[in-house]
């Protein structure tokens, strides 16, 4: 039997997903996740021991093409939506001191 979804678990997934939630949001989400989990656990009624998982509805095969240079949008276009740029690159907060 699964343990009830805890506030700590919700805080952990928030951290993993790089999201910040208020204490009230965490409480609400813990309750909602518990309800959703309880609902989706209906899948356990089905015995799937010998069933293969489906990742895509159509059979996907690797697609190959010749390794040829093609047109691309260029540095200026690629950077035009950048919140911050420097020296033709995306600029981010300092990572290494």
């Amino acid at each position: 039997m699964r343990e009830k979804i805890t506030r700590e678990e919700v805080e952990k997934v928030a951290r993993l997903a790089r999201l910040e939630c208020s204490a009230a949001e965490i409480d609400l989400l813990a309750d909602q996740f518990e309800a959703i989990m309880a609902r989706v656990e209906q899948l356990n009624e089905l015995n799937t021991d010998t069933v293969e998982p489906t990742s895509h509805a159509v059979l996907l095969e690797n697609v190959f093409r010749a390794d040829e240079v093609q047109d691309s949008i260029g540095v200026e276009q690629a950077l035009r939506n950048a919140p911050l740029q420097a020296q033709d690159c995306f600029a981010v907060p300092k990572v290494i001191e």
């Binding site: 989706v40 089905l46 799937t48 069933v51 998982p53 489906t54 990742s55």
Partner: peptide, 14 residues
Amino acid sequence: AYYVKAQKVRTLIR
């Protein structure tokens, strides 16, 4: 128990 289980049930639905 959840994600792969759902992928297997997807096979049954297909």
